[in-house]
Design a binder for these strands. Structure first.
Length: 932
DNA sequence: GACATCACG
DNA sequence: GACGTACGTGATGTCC
């Protein structure tokens, strides 16, 4: 088909794909020879995702991936410093560049580059040609240099954000439409490409000037008229440099091409060619995904005969083979496996159940793996079924040992202190088995072994770990259970299917253990794993099983009251607005406030809708009742839906209590996270919200205790950064925010006003979060310059803080991670990134050692707590980051408080000698509101 | 399933 | 000088 009207050309910015892929992935290597292939892998995944997404009426008819070639272009002749400050290409990326060309060709997509021309110029030329021929063009890139091409049927698409950029989008970015983009870029310059521009002028100012004068030539010709003297002089002095800059940023639409648009017609990949390439690269997961999708068998990927150096300590492993797994269906087989476990001394265990809620799910089967590839599945409670959909007959399927026999036989093994039980997220399996009378110990957990080493790098779920460390994609559970409404429970899965899936999970877990466990000491996190991760599993399991009593009537009454309040508010809101709309829809709220009523302050988010967060509405609320009532409605709506309604659903009918689940490897910093339900965000800051805590009660004859660390993060900061003034204030038991204010503003403590203290408090918190003038200004609602003044003064008074920040960031840049006082490692893969990414990574790196050390401290306290209170009628129920909740017999409160406080305040000892005291506040009461 | 919003430390 | 900006989480509702 000749390119013309009705055609749609996609131009992919190849270099952008490569760099994104490179920075998004860890340095993967090809297993057989160690060739770096991380970027190629990411590149292929992106291409695959791109191709898959190309369906429907908007699909391209023509497509090409465009690459840069050579480093010298006509722009270097114009200006020899062009792109001169580019960092050299990383060593491990260089050999991957030719492979990305091969990959493109393997996907049967045209792959184009020209010596001496930048990809951007080829893209510009093709876009012009296609547009002139009457076709549409989509440029897949987020490079702002390409924005000048937008318009007349040319659009850009940011593939990662799936964001289309049209003329209006360009205007949002540059403040001018595409045809004036080069003018703005010429003025603003570009530090990445080393385009000089005009000193002191950024995009904002440039757009302002261009819009005022029309275009760059007019602006330069009339530069004398500019009112601001400094700006005027800059433009006059730098006119030549600005014109040069324009020539540098102006893309060339006349690149001589040795091919035509017609050569770029979309073609389906040739399965053999594509699979050959992917196999050659040894991309196991992607090869399988694509071969499954197109129904063509891929050539086998050779397993390396010698283990790669990094895995030298792991045993050689046979390839994964789900057909080799055994079903254990008689006593002899069961005894055989138990004998094997005793011979080997460890076993990977995985339980299959009817659901994800460990307090409710029933055991269906148990998988065991003793050596890689040597795994079995013991079906216990599969149901008999009839026909395709397994119509439930209410009876157990044939070929299963009695549950009692299986559990009686396994119990001595699972409780044998000399046999290590290995699991992936072992807390789940331990809780299930605990309900059947088995206390699994000792345990190892591959999820936590990964977390100790790789927090911040990637997730720690089995699929992620299997993909990364075994190059294998396990059978998705969806294949067995389906999804959505027609989803079945595991007990309805035919035993022969269950064997493959279930035993595979145990096999994968065991293999991961062999790969990851030996790495703990290399990453120097053995102590972290052994002292902060592994011992926490049984502690959390018991807390979760204990649960906390929640009074359904209290919640139900509150829900009813909230319903009434909401109905009243809704009527009032509709009356004030003069029309009815969905108050729960931020989009509609934005439209009403900013379009219909024409209020100021409406900002649109990236989806093009008005943003209406609370702080914006709060500003409006002083003048407009409508905004105030919407805020009221939102608060009540939140309390009702998230708390008073949802919590009732979580009350376990058997125990009458709510059992949360803590994820140990959820937060990168070492904090726990609470889910199903989240009991770490129960309201407390408002009076109405706090009343929800009245529904969390002690059982009859008991009392709730709450013990929380006072200012633990600031204390840790004072210790780590070595701030004497803060340390002294803590040692003297002073009000730390008042002391900070006094030191900063030279106000004696006796004359401190609440407002000055409040500001110091905001700064103290800001420091922990990696402070910025902008952030503090927004938080305190003061001018930015004033906020910056506070920060400057703070750093002046406490210079150690700035050193801590600088040192921490430098450490992260050098090592790729930061660490807590207890050695917990938080990886910072983004710390050397450029762009807005970098700011986030920087602040996260500053915060992580502080938040993480506090998390370590309370973990240590929790691990010691059980023994400490063993003789007392008390149990630990909840953790809320710096707070522990206990339930104790009435009368034992003070004894428990004394012991628990001692454990918590001494939790850092003896591993770390803190130079500030840790202080714990305690409260008690019939419910959580009283205790807190 | 993405996004916006808001609950907590 | 301008960029975009507080750190860490999870649950809910809307809307496509």
């Amino acid at each position: 088909m000749a390119f013309g009207k009705g055609c749609h050309l996609h131009l992919i910015d190849g270099s952008a794909f490569i760099f994104r892929a490179y920075h998004a992935l860890p340095p993967l290597t090809r297993k057989s020879d160690g060739l770096p292939i991380g970027a190629v892998s990411g590149f292929c995944n992106m291409l695959h995702r791109y191709v898959e997404g190309n369906t429907g009426p908007d699909a391209p008819t023509h497509v090409a991936v465009i690459f840069d070639k050579g480093s010298h272009t006509f722009r270097n002749d114009l200006y020899d410093l062009y792109k001169a400050n580019r960092e050299a290409m990383p060593e491990d990326l260089r050999p991957q560049i030719p492979l990305t060309r091969e990959a493109t060709i393997a996907f049967n997509i045209a792959c184009k580059e020209m010596e001496g021309f930048e990809a951007d110029d080829i893209i510009a030329t093709l876009a012009c040609q296609a547009r002139d021929a009457g076709g549409r063009v989509t440029i897949i890139s987020s490079d702002k240099d390409l924005m000048q091409l937008v318009g007349d049927g040319v659009e850009m698409l940011d593939a990662m954000k799936n964001l289309r950029i049209d003329r209006d989008g360009v205007f949002e970015k540059f403040g001018v439409f595409p045809e004036r983009v080069v003018d703005v870029q010429a003025l603003a310059g570009d530090s990445v490409d080393n385009v000089p521009g005009a000193p002191g002028i950024g995009v904002k100012t440039a757009a302002l000037l261009i819009n005022e004068y029309g275009d760059l030539d007019t602006l330069l010709a009339r530069a004398e008229e500019i009112k601001q003297p400094k700006r005027r002089q800059t433009l006059i002095d730098n006119a030549e440099q600005i014109r040069l800059s324009r020539r540098l940023v102006q893309l060339d639409c006349d690149t001589p091409l040795d091919f035509t648009l017609d050569d770029l017609e979309v073609q389906d990949p040739v399965p053999e060619v594509l699979l050959d390439f992917l196999t050659k690269m040894e991309f196991r997961t992607l090869t399988k995904r694509i071969s499954d999708a197109i129904g063509v068998e891929a050539p086998a990927i050779p397993e390396p005969s010698v283990a790669a150096p990094a895995e030298a300590e792991a045993p050689e492993m046979p390839p994964m083979d789900t057909a080799a797994y055994a079903a254990v269906q008689d006593s002899a087989a069961l005894q055989h496996w138990i004998a094997r476990i005793r011979e080997v001394g460890h076993v990977a265990v995985d339980t299959e159940t009817t659901g994800l809620n460990e307090m409710r799910a029933d055991l269906v089967g148990i998988c065991l793996a003793v050596t890689p590839g040597e795994a079995c599945y013991i079906p216990i409670a599969h149901r008999a079924g009839e026909g395709e959909g397994l119509f439930d007959t209410g009876e157990l399927a044939a070929g299963q040992l009695p549950m009692a026999e299986v559990l009686d036989a396994l119990k001595p093994v699972f409780e044998d202190p000399s046999i290590l039980k290995i699991g992936q997220n072992m807390k789940y399996d331990a809780k299930i088995l605990a309900r059947y009378g088995i206390d699994v110990a000792p345990i190892d957990d591959t999820m936590l072994i990964s977390y100790a080493q790789h927090a911040g790098e990637h997730g720690h779920g089995m699929d992620t770990l299997s993909d990364r460390y075994l190059g294998h994609a396990p059978i998705p559970i969806k294949d067995l259970l389906g999804s959505g409404k027609s989803m079945i429970t595991f007990d309805r899965v035919p035993i022969e299917d269950a064997v493959k899936y279930a035993a595979e999970d145990a096999d994968v877990t065991l293999r991961l253990w062999h790969v990851l466990k030996p790495q703990l000491h290399r990453k120097k996190v053995t102590t972290v794993y052994e002292s902060l991760e592994r011992p926490l599993v049984p502690v959390l399991a018991r807390m979760e099983m204990a649960g906390i009593k929640v009074n359904r009537d209290t919640l139900s009454r509150m829900s009813n009251a909230f319903s009434q309040t909401m109905a009243g508010l809704e009527a009032e809101i509709h009356a004030l607005a003069g029309e009815t709309f969905n108050v729960g829809s931020p989009a509609q709220v934005g439209e009403i406030l900013f379009d219909r009523m024409g209020l100021e302050g409406g900002k649109k988010g990236k989806t093009g809708k008005y943003s209406t967060p609370a702080d914006v509405l709060e500003d409006l609320a002083t003048e407009h009742d409508l905004a105030a009532r919407i805020l009221d409605w939102r608060q009540v709506s939140k309390l009702k839906s998230t708390y008073t309604d949802a919590l009732q659903e979580h009350i376990n009918p058997e125990t009458g209590r709510v059992h949360t689940s803590y994820s140990i490897a959820g937060a990168n910093t070492g904090r726990l996270a609470s889910t199903d339900p989240n009991l770490q965000n129960i309201p407390v800051r408002t009076e109405e919200g706090r009343r929800i805590r009245e529904a969390f009660v002690a059982d009859e004859g008991k009392v709730l205790l709450s013990l929380d660390y006072s200012q633990i993060e600031l204390r840790i900061l004072a210790h780590i950064a070595g701030i004497d003034a803060l340390k002294e204030a803590f040692r003297d038991g002073q009000d730390i925010h008042a002391a900070t204010a006094s030191e900063m503003f030279n106000v004696p403590l006796a004359e401190m006003t609440p407002d000055v203290r409040r500001q110091a408090k905001a700064i103290n918190f800001g420091v922990i979060y990696g402070i910025s003038g902008f952030g503090l200004a927004r938080n305190l609602r003061i001018p930015r310059a004033e906020a910056q003044g506070f920060i400057d003064r703070y750093f002046e008074r406490f210079p150690g803080i700035r050193d801590y920040m600088d040192d921490t960031v430098a450490f992260a840049k050098e090592h790729g991670h930061v660490q807590t006082l207890f050695g917990r490692r938080i990886n910072t893969p983004e710390i050397n990134a450029r762009g807005p990414h970098a700011g986030f990574a920087r602040r996260a790196a500053i915060n992580a050692p502080i938040q993480g050390t506090a998390a370590d401290v309370i973990r240590r306290a929790m691990i010691r707590m059980e023994d400490a209170i063993a003789g007392l009628p008390a149990r630990m129920l909840l953790q809320v980051h710096d707070e522990l909740i206990f339930e104790v017999d009435a009368g034992a409160e003070d004894a428990v408080i004394a012991i628990a406080r001692e454990v918590m305040e001494g939790a850092a000892d003896p591993a770390v000698k803190l130079s500030v005291p840790l202080v714990v506040d305690a409260g008690k009461g019939a419910n959580w509101a009283e205790a807190h």
